[in-house]
C-alpha cells in the first residue's frame, strides 16, 4: 500500500462517501421523506453530536466485546485450521461438522446463550467468536494444504519430518491466507456482537439502536449504524495494513519485512 498512487486514487473513497451522503441528503429533501422513515445525513450527524456521550460509551463497549470475541476466534481458528490443514484424518472427521456449524445463522444461537449465560457480555463475545472463527480456520487450513507435491518430495528426500515441513513451509505459506482472513473476520465479529446486543444485552451499540427504535428516535438508530460501519472500516484497514506489511512477498512487493 505504500507505493505512490495518483492523488485521485487516494481521494476517490472520500469522494464516493461524500457523494453518497450528498445523494441521500438531496433525495430526502426532494421527496420530502419524513424523518422517522429516513432521516437526512445532516440530521443524523447532528444527533451523533448530541448523543456523543452515550454513543461513545456504548460503542466502546461493543468494540470491547468484539475484540475479545475476535481474539478468541483468532486463537480457535488458528488451532482448528492447523489441525485440519495438517492432518487429513482431522480434516475428514471435522469437515461436515464445520460446514453444518457454519450454516447455522448465528442469531439463532443467541437465545440458547442467554439461557446458559444470562443477558450481557458473554453471549455477545461468544456470538462474535462463533461468526468469525470459521473464515480464519478455513484460510489457515487452505494455506497449509496447498503444499506443492514436488516441494514436499524435495523436503522428504532430505529426511524432513512432518513437523519440519509444517514449520519451514506450511506456516509461512499460510500466513498470507491467515492475514487475508483476519480483515474479513473482524468485520464479521462486529456483526456477531451487534446481533447479540440487539437480542440480549443492556449495553452496546446494538442495544442503543434497539432502544432508540422503540422510542422512534430513528436518527439515533442511523447514527448507531454509521458508528458500526465506521468501526468496521477502521478495523478492516488496520488488518489490511498489517497484512500488507507482513506478507508482502505474496503480492510481490519490493519493500516489506521478511516473515518467520
Amino acid at each position: 500500500m505504500s507505493r505512490k498512487r495518483p492523488a485521485i486514487q487516494t481521494l476517490m473513497p472520500w469522494l464516493v462517501v461524500f457523494g453518497l451522503f450528498g445523494a441521500w441528503e438531496l433525495a430526502c429533501i426532494a421527496f420530502s421523506v419524513p424523518e422517522f422513515v429516513l432521516p437526512r445525513p445532516t440530521v443524523v450527524f447532528q444527533t451523533m453530536a448530541e448523543f456523543a456521550g452515550p454513543l461513545w460509551q456504548h460503542s466502546s463497549y461493543t468494540l470491547f466485546t468484539t475484540v475479545i470475541g475476535f481474539a478468541l476466534a483468532v486463537i480457535g481458528g488458528v488451532l482448528l485450521g492447523l489441525a485440519v490443514g495438517a492432518s487429513p484424518l482431522v480434516y475428514h472427521g471435522l469437515y461436515p461438522v464445520l460446514i453444518g456449524f457454519n450454516a447455522i445463522p448465528k442469531v439463532a444461537i443467541v437465545p440458547v446463550l442467554v439461557v446458559w449465560f444470562g443477558i450481557g457480555t458473554i453471549p455477545a463475545i461468544i456470538t462474535a467468536f462463533a461468526i468469525s472463527f470459521f473464515p480464519i480456520a478455513v484460510n489457515v487450513a487452505t494455506g497449509l494444504a496447498t503444499l506443492e507435491p514436488e516441494l514436499e518430495d524435495v523436503l522428504r528426500s532430505l529426511g524432513a519430518s512432518k513437523l519440519d515441513i509444517l514449520l519451514k513451509v506450511g506456516l509461512p505459506r499460510s500466513l498470507p491466507y491467515f492475514f487475508a482472513s483476519l480483515k474479513v473476520a473482524v468485520t464479521l465479529a462486529f456483526v456477531g456482537s451487534v446481533i447479540a446486543e440487539t437480542v440480549a444485552s443492556n449495553e452496546g451499540i446494538g442495544y442503543l439502536m434497539l432502544q432508540a427504535s422503540s422510542r422512534f428516535q430513528i436518527p439515533l438508530v442511523f447514527a448507531g449504524l454509521i458508528v458500526i460501519a465506521a468501526m468496521g472500516v477502521v478495523m478492516y484497514f488496520l488488518f489490511a495494513a498489517v497484512e500488507g506489511r507482513l506478507t508482502g512477498w505474496a503480492t510481490r512487493k519490493t519493500e516489506f519485512a521478511e516473515v518467520e
Binding site: 514436488e150 518430495d153 524435495v154 528426500s157 529426511g159 505459506r173 521478511e258 516473515v259 518467520e260
Partner: peptide
C-alpha cells in the same frame, strides 16, 4: 524416504518468502 538425497524438478519450487541465500540454507 532417503535422508540425504538432492532433488530438482522442472518447477524450481523455491520458497517465495526467502531470499536466494536462505532458500539455499533450507
Amino acid at each position: 524416504p532417503l535422508k540425504i538425497c538432492g532433488m530438482g524438478f522442472q518447477n524450481p519450487t523455491l520458497l517465495p518468502w526467502r531470499t536466494t541465500l536462505r532458500n539455499l540454507m533450507l
